[in-house]
């Protein structure tokens, strides 16, 4: 099926603000669906709540739209009950990394074969630009008018440390690289995670001197470095950069495959008991 056919064109134009990166990431995802010959029937897109949580409105595969922060937990059940499905979980930084942070690290540790794509626009867009778990220190948001005093998560580092076999960070500016990461993540057997650094011109951009729609994307471009060149940076320098590249790419047996052994052992015990 063609990428465009995975989109619900009757619901266009997209609900997101002018210049928001969500549409760019969604477009990349459906291009990957086409490349991998996914079908509407064998794919489930799972979302939580937030701007990116509206992504499933525009994708015409099976969809499950759950609660704020819990998309991965719904996705875990969907996948484990039918391992044949392609399960793709879309979350924002507020959704997936803040309220849902615990689910994220445990899904990575558990290694369920789902792909999560977190659009990280550094704030809560839908509720009006409040700070999230990834908002960088010193930045202004609608709830950190005097400058943010917390530090944001290095999400990809966090998920890699939790044991995910595939972790990569790209950006909407580097859309070709981002699409490559999404494709690799979808192909990976096991928990895969792609973080897409994205722009929220309406809130984060506006409050941080980048009110033009293209302004925040340009800031992302100017502050991006590759994983390899980031090695030469100090910790404080790293914190102010978007480090793009792969954080993990390894083979690791996924939960469903391992569970087949559990079933085998359990049946032996049952037969033995008779």
């Amino acid at each position: 099926m063609k990428a465009q056919e995975f989109l619900v064109k009757e619901k266009f134009p997209l609900f997101w603000c002018a210049g928001c990166g969500n549409g760019s990431v969604m477009h990349a995802i459906v291009r990957c669906f086409e490349k991998l010959n996914y079908t509407r029937e064998n794919t489930v897109v799972v979302t939580g709540i937030g701007c990116w949580g509206k992504g499933d409105d525009y994708i015409n595969t099976n969809t499950f739209h759950g609660t704020h922060g819990r998309a991965l937990a719904f996705g875990t059940g969907i996948k484990l009950a039918n391992p044949e499905l392609n399960v793709v979980v879309l979350m924002g930084d507020g959704d997936g990394a803040t309220i849902g942070g615990n689910h994220l690290i445990h899904a990575a540790r558990r290694n369920v074969d789902v792909t999560s794509i977190v659009v990280n626009n550094l704030n809560y867009g839908m509720t009006g630009g409040q700070y999230s778990g990834t908002t960088p220190c010193n930045k202004t948001t609608s709830t950190s008018r005097y400058g943010h005093i917390e530090h944001g998560f290095d999400l990809s580092g966090l998920v890699a440390a939790a044991g995910a076999p595939y972790v990569a960070r790209g950006s909407v500016y580097g859309i070709v690289q981002l699409e490559k990461f999404i494709l690799e993540a979808l192909k990976k057997k096991g928990f895969s995670f792609v973080e897409a650094i994205s722009q929220c011109p309406t809130h984060f951009g506006r409050l941080n001197g980048m009110k033009e729609p293209a302004g925040m994307l340009n800031w992302i471009k100017e502050n991006s470095v590759s994983v390899s060149s980031a090695n030469q940076l100090s910790d404080s320098e790293r914190e102010n950069k978007f480090i793009l590249g792969k954080f993990a790419d390894k083979e690791k047996e996924d939960y469903s495959t391992k569970y087949l052994r559990v079933i085998r052992e359990a049946k032996k015990i049952k037969e033995g008991g008779k």
Binding site: V46, F64, G66, T67, R70, L72, A73, F74, G75, T76, G77, I78, K79, L80, A81, N82, L85, N102, H103, H106, R110, Y255, Y259, V262, I263, E265, A266, K267, I269, K270
Partner: peptide, 26 residues
């Protein structure tokens, strides 16, 4: 697992009910 079913222990009860809803949808 003796009946080809599946048991998974989640990280909390919020995730637990989410997972059973997802599994039922499957």
């Amino acid at each position: 697992p003796q009946e080809d079913g599946l048991y998974v222990q989640m990280e909390d009860e919020i995730a637990s009910i989410a997972a059973i809803i997802g599994a039922s949808a499957s």
